[in-house]
């Protein structure tokens, strides 16, 4: 058993270097992936955004030309505005998810079935959600269309109306997003300490007060994750726009991620540089939130130590 004796003779310094090496070795595969599929493409996109390039011909350096054009582009501002609406309204998923979670957090017969029914929209694909809602809004046969016609007597084709279309798509997006937040809160509620609830009840806390001062503080980790996934979900809202309207009517439901795809990769696109410039702007917006989240996590970690 020579190797084992050799192991015992390791100097403390060697052992320490081994210990400090191990985490990096474990990190290496993930870090390499992150580098190849995230970090390097980010810089490549920035690089491409300074060129005019159709993907086939040689690239032509135009400096900030794409950005100059972007800031004079109505379609860009429409997309930006829609992204802001998405962000604002998508936040509703967090309180709505909390409410449903509180409602479902009880022990009655068959509660598991109710929970899974509420969770159902998150399991089905976004493409299917988009299709269901397109039919829901569809003129002439859609359920919602018929309902509005029956109530008001007027006909509203949500997905063909420039003022309503974005809201119509956001509602479709909220359906699975609420389910997602609900699941996060349901798991969080399991971790709420029953003794604290008991103590608060003895002190006479009830209803909103109980929720605000006792339950919610204990749900902070769940709230944090729910916020993160909702912000990211809102900013990368692509599938629903693509399925339900393709950005239409006349581009009024575009969001930045869809506009980027249209310019760079769609049938009439292949303006790689311009698409990359849009991507860089979207990245900058995301960076605001990402830095915020990272800063908060770093602060919490430091506080925990």
């Amino acid at each position: 058993m020579v190797p084992s004796t050799a192991k015992h003779t390791l100097t403390p310094r060697k052992r320490r270097s081994r210990q400090s090496l191990a985490p990096w070795l474990f990190l290496a595969p993930g870090f390499a992936m992150f580098l190849v599929y995230v970090i390097i493409p980010v810089f490549q996109s920035m690089w491409v955004s300074f060129f005019e390039w159709d993907g086939l011909s040689p690239k032509i350096w135009i400096g900030l030309g794409n950005y100059v054009e972007l800031f004079d582009d109505e379609a860009f501002y429409t997309s930006l505005k829609n992204n802001v609406i998405w962000l604002a309204l998508y936040m509703l998923a967090v309180p709505a998810g909390l409410m449903i979670a509180l409602f479902l957090n009880q022990t009655v017969r068959g509660i598991r079935i109710y929970k899974s029914l509420f969770f159902f929209p998150f399991v089905i694909s976004q493409v299917v959600v988009g299709l269901i809602f397109s039919w829901f809004y569809a003129p002439d046969f859609g359920l919602f269309y018929k309902l509005i016609e029956w109530i008001t007597g007027s006909q509203v084709a949500i997905l063909a109306d420039e003022n309503l279309v974005t809201y119509g798509i956001i509602i479709a997006g909220l359906w699975p997003q609420i389910a997602y937040c609900m699941i996060l809160y349901l798991t969080g509620l399991n971790a709420v300490a029953p003794d604290q609830i008991e103590a608060a009840r003895l002190d006479g806390a009830k209803g909103m007060k109980m929720l605000w001062y006792v339950v919610l503080p204990q749900l902070r980790p769940a709230t944090f994750i729910a916020l993160v996934v909702t912000v990211i979900g809102a900013l990368r809202s692509f599938d629903l726009v693509s399925i339900m309207t393709s950005g239409g009517p006349y581009g009024s439901s575009r969001v930045l991620s869809y506009y980027m795809y249209e310019q760079a990769l769609s049938e009439y696109g292949y303006r790689m540089g311009y698409g990359a410039a849009i991507a860089v702007v979207l990245f900058a917006i995301m960076m605001i939130f990402i830095s915020g989240f990272i800063w908060k996590m770093w602060r919490d970690e430091k506080g925990a130590r």
Binding site: G248, P249, Y250, S266, E267, Y268, G269
Partner: peptide, 22 residues
């Protein structure tokens, strides 16, 4: 239109036609 015009013009043009119709 989308074969006679440049791809970029085709996209913006057809969107314009749709907007005009509405």
């Amino acid at each position: 239109f989308d074969r006679d015009a440049s791809p970029e013009m085709a996209k913006v043009g057809m969107e314009g036609f749709q907007e005009f119709m509405v």
